[in-house]
Computed example of a mutant assay.
Amino acid sequence: MAREGARPSYDPAGPDRPLRGALQDLRTGRWMAMRTLLAETGQWWLWTQRTQVLAAAAAGTDVVRAWLAEEPDSAHAAVMQARVGVERALRAQRERHLRTHELWIEAWDAAQSASRVAPQNPVPWVCLLALAQLDPEQRWEEHRAAAPEPLLPPGPWGLLAEAGKRDPYNREAHHRMLQFLYARGGTGRLAEAAGYAQWAADRAPAGSALHVLPLYVRVERYRRDSGHDAALDLHWVAEDAARETRHALHAWFEHTHRAERSLLDLNHLAHALWGSHRFADAARVFEAIGPYFTPPPWMYRTSDRDRAVEIFVQARERSRAASDGSGPHP
């Protein structure tokens, strides 16, 4: 594959051209391309991924509401309505908006409704899992179910199980579970998140994106604790971090094709391989990333978020140079 240009770009659709077309249509206030795209999306993992991106673009508009008004019996429109509701509730919570609770209940109602009209679809259950992080005190009974393993904390395990029944090892469902664990706060919570990520990865088959989960927890740990390059670099050369990085490479990356991989997962793996000085392997992952870029995890290495792309380019070129033999090897 020919090498991509030196300056990557952030594109929420990444290499998914049909999704990019639907997003362009959505931004002009039209929903027909979104409807067609979802009708033609046959795999649940891709349905989950595409609806998440579409909802982020639609949350500030009335496009999905217009679709549902035009086609009130559309199960796909109902699921997208839940998606948009969740996106709005989470944004309100981040901005500490006074309507957060109201938007949360609206989103929960929409997700419950979507689960009834689209009973085989995992996305309504992913939506309910996403809302669980708004209840860090676990006041809702469904957010304090007993874990399937004694060492794991109580949480929205029933919601995770429902998503898993419809799409085993659903990537976003497990990331939403991680976000719930982060939201609980307090000392030791990151250790619980790390235990959960390892548990999920240990159960996942080869090729599952869940093998990358432990790398996200590591990024979250150093994001909270330091945020300085020196600390991050020391972090990745530690044996347990290097082991998790190797595992993600061999159990996920080497068992998947380009179209199956999340750009966010690829960026986290490239970042970890580069940080652990596995430059030849990092170069392979950078090639898979192509001309795209995701701000996390690179933006956590700088207080200037605009510099994140520069750090990405430096890491890519360092990895390529070592892989080609034109730079120093570790």
Rank of each mutant, 00 (worst) to 15 (best):
A118W: 01
L263F: 09
Y196L: 10
A77W: 13
S323E: 03
W67N: 01
A55D: 04
R318P: 15
R116H: 15
W108D: 15
N267A: 14
R65S: 14
H257G: 12
R246H: 12
N267K: 10
G158K: 04
L129T: 05
L68P: 04
R94K: 13
R218V: 13
V63K: 04
R318Y: 06
H329G: 13
I105A: 13
P12W: 06
H271S: 12
D62G: 11
G207F: 07
V126D: 06
P296T: 12
P330M: 00
H271F: 15
E40D: 14
Q138L: 03
P148R: 06
P119W: 07
R27T: 09
R7H: 07
G327F: 05
A77H: 14
P15M: 05
Q49T: 08
Y292A: 07
E141P: 01
A183N: 07
V53G: 11
H247W: 10
A230E: 15
G164Y: 09
F253H: 08
A282M: 04
Q138H: 07
V313I: 07
I289G: 02
P296N: 12
Q112I: 15
R320I: 09
G188L: 01
R278V: 01
T256R: 09
D135V: 02
A55S: 11
V309L: 11
V217E: 06
A173V: 03
A107P: 01
W236L: 01
L263G: 15
L129K: 04
D281R: 00
H97P: 00
A193I: 00
W236N: 02
E172C: 02
E71C: 05
L273V: 00
A270L: 02
S113H: 14
R65C: 11
